[in-house]
């Protein structure tokens, strides 16, 4: 009941033994449910995860094992707590944490991201949108007091900021004022962990060096970003 010569292809390719108007064996094979499920659904899944999942994973593991500097340390408990808060509040949806290997990114934020920097992040928080600036070179850039003020009321430090305030990370004091909770302290510790390893060790590879060959410094915007 299919393909009564309604396409040119069917008309051209009918070999004599096939009944007139029937599609070729290849076409009939490709139309089959089993072909679609096995070759299409399963086959393409296996192919894509081998080619773009397993192969680069092996490569990256090898590369990270070679390039991780001796000074690298995974997050401590406080930074881990901050990482949890960072994930829960969706920070990564406005702030990326990887500097791309292109001149404008490196000039604004600092050395491009290295694979080993992220080896203790489950799951990674690279992000795909920048409403606010990248944070992966944040370590030591600002005082803890600035961070607390900014988290409590972003407009107090950057008047035109559109960042949400996070007052529930602070404890209101009876006499006015607020004290950072454990979560806020963790979050600031995490922000100071971001980029510390590369600061200590210096950018390891060609990636992450500014165009002039020097390891870029964090010479992005002066003042509040």
């Amino acid at each position: 009941m299919s393909g009564e010569g309604d396409t040119d292809m069917d008309a051209v390719q009918d070999p004599p033994p096939a009944p007139p108007g029937r599609p070729s064996r290849l076409v009939r094979m490709l139309e089959r449910g089993t072909t679609v499920m096995l070759l299409g659904g399963v086959g393409s899944l296996v192919l894509s995860f081998l080619a773009l999942g397993v192969v680069p994973t092996i490569e990256l593991t090898h590369q990270m094992n070679q390039s991780t500097p001796a000074s690298w340390k995974p997050m401590n408990a406080e930074e881990q707590l901050g990482f949890t808060v960072y994930k829960r509040e969706g920070c990564a949806y406005c702030h990326t944490t990887f500097v791309r290997d292109i001149p404008s990114d490196v000039a604004r934020f600092g050395p491009a991201g290295e694979a080993w920097e992220y080896r203790d992040q489950y799951p990674q928080q690279w992000g795909t949108r920048r409403v606010g600036p990248d944070l992966s070179r944040e370590s030591g850039l600002r005082s803890d007091a600035w961070h607390y003020a900014h988290l409590y009321d972003p407009r107090s430090t950057v008047p035109q900021s559109v960042m949400p305030a996070y007052p529930w990370l602070f404890q209101q004091q009876p006499g006015g004022g607020a004290v950072p909770t454990e979560e806020a302290r963790g979050l600031v510790a995490y922000l100071n962990y971001l980029g510390r390893a590369i600061q200590v060790s210096g950018a390891q590879t060609e990636r992450g060096r500014a165009v002039d060959g020097s390891t870029a410094t964090r010479n992005h915007d002066v003042g509040p970003r």
Partner: peptide
């Protein structure tokens, strides 16, 4: 047939592996 056979395994890899087994750049791939 394609969507229904492909998605379950892809979903498992995407949801669970970066969360527990594949950190950082490897998780980003997945």
């Amino acid at each position: 047939a394609l969507a229904l056979t492909f998605t379950p395994v892809a979903f498992v890899i995407g949801q669970f592996v970066p969360e527990y087994f594949a950190p950082g750049a490897i998780g980003a791939i997945l």
